[in-house]
Amino acid sequence: MRQEMILEVGGVTKTAGRRTLVKELSFGVRPGEVCGFVGPNGAGKTTLIRMITGLIKPDSGQIRIDGVDVRQDRIAALSRVGAIVESPIFFPYMSGRGNLLNLARLHGNLHTSAQRKARVEEVLAIVDLSGRGSDKVKTYSLGMKQRLGIAQALLGSPKLIILDEPANGLDPMGIRDLRNLILKLRDEQGISFFISSHLLDELQRICSRFVIIKEGGMVWQGTSGEWVDIAGTRGLEEHFVELMTR
């Protein structure tokens, strides 16, 4: 059972001064699963994502990605992960393709320039940006930046992709494209997703599992079906508000 998890978070706590940002969080994500990570603004979602990607260190607890402890072997753990932390900030003075080619150098599995070029074209095609790849990133719309963000996350052929509020500010077409992209990657490449968001209806359409937090602590976790059952006729939104105000 342990081995099967692609992402395991075990008793993770992080404090900053007197404030507890994340409190004893534990959960797991299975391969091929899309897991929604839900909580109000300031609940500690981004803090946890920073810890999963090794940008900050937990005070206690452990995080394993594909069985590798992030703290003990960050490099090995991150070679299995692609991520967007907050909104992706690219190098504005380079083209979309240039950004990806530059970042591709940092993946050990892409040794030669030919390999890197091939992989960059591949991911550009997946996110449907091949046509605009040569334009400077500063000319991109928000939706295109978000798709380029997924492209950079795909570079290292990850088993797990972490997205932090990916739908923020996207228009309905952008949200639909993003949803289809996530489902395609899950179905065709078996990639697992861990997505933080507060667009509940949107998450419900793609997630098979939910983790709900409030003020850094776990409030509820379970499958999508279980949540729908508990919420009943009230709907997810009503139930979520109830969980948060209880």
Binding site: I89, P92, L106
Partner: peptide, 14 residues
């Protein structure tokens, strides 16, 4: 501090 390095920091590098 402009946030641009974040894309590099999340790669498998030390």
């Amino acid at each position: 501090t402009a946030g641009q390095l974040r894309l590099v920091l999340i790669r498998p590098i030390s």
